[in-house]
Simulated scan of single mutants.
Amino acid sequence: MITAENITYSIGSHRILANICATFNPGRVTAILGPNGAGKSTFLKCLTGALKPDEGSVTVDGRDLHQYSLTELSRRRAVLSQANPISFPFTAHEIVVMGRNPYSLEKTTASNAEIADEALALVDAWHLRDRAFPTLSGGEQQRVQFARVISQIWEQEGASLFLDEPTSALDLKHQHQLLELVQILSTEKNLTVVIVMHDLNLAYYSTDHCYFIKDGGIQGGEDSKDLIKADIISEIFDLPKEYAAMRFGGQFAD
């Protein structure tokens, strides 16, 4: 379980997050939703340890995040960021093998390569294994990077997976495949999955719980299908109620 308690984070005089509290449970996929610039990615970085909040704390299984060593963290959580610029001509397979770095001293090269191949196959990218990463399309790169983070926690039960806009460059088929795989992994490996998303349709159908962030505050934490509805969307995204009802009123009805 991951718990955020009173997270506050500012850049200069601008407060990005203000006293945010949230809980993320194993075996569940939780979406973080909200307008552009609301602080979603900043909050995700606080959860992963990439940023240290000005106030508050993040605990993982009851232990403060910053008490873990980098080696421990590299085996307990994997992070897919929005931007993963790589200009060197590594192959897709080599990129995925990088996810196995935390195990390089105890696992054989052959074993790590085999896991990388299995991860590529899971994300429908095995056929790209020998292609130079910079030559791939944006969606292909995203799938390869997703394979990398999967390989990082391949044998870890109860680990955490943090994804920042993982479907932004994917076509409809691969959006469905990726989110279906996330659900399967969260259940089979008891993963705690946190996803920053913009697409409310995907969040509604593909996540268990969700939070909304707006103006540095947070609300939600309940079932996605109970929260992603027209009245809440109108409030969070500053939409006219009539438009939200017309656009989303019946869209999420089962």
Score class of each variant (00 low, 15 high):
Asn101Tyr: 13
Ser137Pro: 07
Leu172Ser: 11
Glu155Ile: 00
Phe146Cys: 03
Asp171Ala: 08
Val193Tyr: 06
Ile153Asn: 07
Ser151Ile: 01
Cys210Ile: 03
Phe146Ala: 09
Gly138Tyr: 03
Leu161Phe: 11
Tyr205Ala: 11
Glu140Pro: 04
Ile150Asn: 03
Thr109Glu: 13
Ala125Gln: 04
Ser206Lys: 15
Thr167His: 10
Arg131Lys: 14
Asn101Leu: 12
Ala169Cys: 05
Arg100Pro: 06
Asn201Leu: 12
Gln175Met: 10
Leu179Met: 15
His209Glu: 15
Ser168Asn: 10
Met197Phe: 08
Thr135Asn: 01
Leu120Pro: 02
Leu200Met: 06
Glu114Ala: 13
Asp164Ser: 08
Ala147Asn: 05
Leu170Trp: 06
Thr207Val: 13
Leu128Asp: 00
Gly139Thr: 06
Thr108Trp: 02
Trp154Ala: 11
Ile184Ser: 12
Leu185Cys: 05
Thr108Leu: 01
Gln142Thr: 08
Leu170Pro: 05
Asp208Arg: 07
Glu165Asp: 03
Arg148Val: 01
Ser206Gln: 14
Ser111Cys: 07
Ala125Val: 04
His209Trp: 10
Asn201Ala: 15
Asp208Tyr: 10
Leu178Cys: 05
Ser186Lys: 04
Ser206Cys: 12
Gln145Pro: 09
Lys173Arg: 14
Gln142Lys: 09
Leu122Tyr: 04
Ala110Asp: 10
Ala121Gly: 05
His209Gln: 13
Asp164Trp: 07
His127Asn: 10
Asp130Ile: 00
Glu165His: 02
Ala125Tyr: 02
Gln145Tyr: 03
Thr135Ile: 04
Thr207Lys: 04
Asp124Arg: 06
Asp124Leu: 01
Gly158Ile: 10
Gly158Pro: 11
Glu188Met: 10
Gly138His: 02
Lys107Ser: 10
Phe146Lys: 01
Leu105Lys: 13
Pro166Arg: 08
Ser168Leu: 07
Gln183Met: 14
Asp124Asn: 14
Arg129Asn: 00
Cys210Thr: 03
Asp130His: 13
Lys107Glu: 14
Ala159Glu: 03
Leu163Glu: 05
Asp199Lys: 03
Ile115His: 02
Thr207Phe: 07
Ser168Arg: 10
His174Trp: 11
Gln177Thr: 12
Leu191Ala: 07
Met98Ala: 06
Ser104Arg: 15
Thr109His: 11
Ser186Cys: 13
Gln142Ser: 08
Ile150Glu: 03
Ser111Met: 10
Tyr211Lys: 09
Ser160His: 13
Lys173Cys: 09
Trp154His: 12
Glu157Tyr: 12
Ala169Asn: 15
Asp124Cys: 03
Phe146Leu: 14
Gln175Pro: 08
Val182Thr: 15
Ala169Thr: 09
Pro102His: 06
Asp208Leu: 09
Glu188Phe: 03
Gln156Lys: 15
His198Gly: 08
Asp208Asn: 12
Leu172Thr: 14
Val149Ser: 06
Ile153Cys: 08
Leu181Ile: 09
Gly138Arg: 01
Trp126Tyr: 13
Glu188Pro: 03
Tyr204Asp: 09
Pro134Gly: 06
Leu179Lys: 07
Ile115Gly: 01
Asn201His: 12
Gln156Thr: 15
Ala119Cys: 13
Ala125Lys: 03
Val144Asn: 00
Leu136Phe: 10
Gln156Met: 12
Arg143Gly: 01
Gln145Phe: 07
Leu122Phe: 04
Glu165Asn: 05
